[in-house]
Amino acid sequence: MQNRSAQFALLFPVAAVFIWSLNIAVTRYAADFISPVSISFYRWLVAFVLLTPFLVMPFWRHRALVLQCWKQLALLSAFGMVLYQGLAYSAAHYTTAIHMGLINALTPVFTIAVSVLLLKEWPNRYAAVGCFISLCGLLLVIAQGQQANLLDLGSHAGDLIMLAAVFLYAFYGILLKKWQLQLPLFVSLYVQIIFALLYHLPFVLWLGLDGINMQNASSVIYAGIFASIFAPLLWMMAVQHLGPSRTSIFMNLMPVFTALIAYFWLAETWGIYHTLGTGLTILGVLLAQRSNQLRKNIVNLAEK
């Protein structure tokens, strides 16, 4: 019975990654029908409206803790919900969903880099080799198998914007680990959504909002409900049942899911360089993560 429960728990991270992968395709699709500022603002507005009936009382009960760590929550919201999402929606205007999914898979690699900057945690040689292999895979895809293409930076604007988005998102995970806020996860999420809406207001006042219509309504609803509420919930359930290390490995499915969705839905082309680049990226990420897990196992054995 316990075995079956553990196997069922594997569906949680798979479902979460699939939802996020589909959201990348939705983001690329919606780029032609709604501005980055509009879909980003509407996304968090939808999540806020739906979560408020369930979280307003927990938020009030924990208001003292919220006041103690509001600066940290504001910074987390800036990195995870505004900068990352805003840049991702902007990148969708200039690159493909396949490229966005592949670059997203580099989150663990960028996390290692940010750990060096903020936590002074230097990677071991296996993690360093894994980062290098992943970077080679990414460059292969961006260059489309031709080294000369790397010199044409103008044609890679979307990939560079997405790289910046993922790099900034790595700060979100590291700061979350560093601060370890003593707030229920959903209350923390709720407060960050509130800050995200506040951050958007100057942009909304300056640039205005696109209206919701038949062409973009489904994208806004999907991003606001599934990608902002259901996926994080499934991911947290996965972490609870499987642990953070085992759960994080499932992020490597993102470029695969995104490529399949983009191929069948958006009719994006898939070349041999995509296959080789994705394989190298996933191999590098697995090597980096595996080395960290191996080190933890050795430490645990030594303590016993």
Rank of each mutant, 00 (worst) to 15 (best):
4 R>F: 15
6 A>F: 11
11 L>A: 13
14 V>Q: 09
17 V>R: 12
23 N>P: 07
23 N>H: 09
29 Y>A: 12
39 I>D: 06
42 Y>G: 01
42 Y>I: 05
42 Y>S: 08
49 V>M: 12
50 L>C: 09
50 L>H: 08
52 T>Y: 01
58 P>E: 10
62 H>D: 04
63 R>L: 13
64 A>K: 13
69 C>N: 14
72 Q>D: 06
72 Q>E: 14
75 L>I: 06
78 A>I: 12
81 M>N: 04
87 L>N: 01
88 A>G: 01
92 A>C: 06
93 H>S: 05
94 Y>P: 08
95 T>K: 04
97 A>Q: 04
99 H>F: 03
101 G>T: 08
101 G>Q: 11
102 L>G: 02
103 I>W: 15
106 L>D: 09
106 L>C: 10
111 T>H: 03
113 A>T: 03
114 V>C: 01
116 V>K: 07
117 L>W: 09
119 L>R: 05
123 P>H: 15
125 R>G: 00
129 V>N: 01
131 C>F: 13
132 F>S: 09
135 L>C: 10
140 L>V: 09
142 I>Q: 03
148 A>E: 15
148 A>H: 12
149 N>M: 02
150 L>P: 00
156 H>P: 07
159 D>Y: 03
166 V>Y: 12
173 G>N: 12
175 L>M: 04
176 L>E: 00
177 K>Y: 08
177 K>T: 02
182 Q>P: 00
188 S>D: 06
191 V>P: 00
191 V>A: 01
192 Q>H: 11
193 I>N: 06
195 F>S: 00
196 A>P: 01
196 A>C: 02
197 L>H: 00
200 H>R: 01
201 L>T: 09
202 P>V: 12
202 P>A: 14
215 Q>R: 14
224 G>Y: 02
225 I>M: 10
237 M>R: 12
239 V>T: 12
239 V>Y: 07
242 L>V: 11
243 G>I: 10
244 P>D: 12
244 P>L: 13
248 S>H: 05
251 M>E: 13
251 M>C: 03
251 M>S: 06
262 A>F: 12
265 W>E: 00
265 W>D: 04
269 T>D: 14
269 T>R: 15
274 H>V: 11
279 G>E: 12
281 T>S: 05
283 L>H: 01
284 G>L: 10
284 G>N: 08
290 R>T: 13
291 S>V: 11
296 K>Q: 15
297 N>V: 11
298 I>M: 07
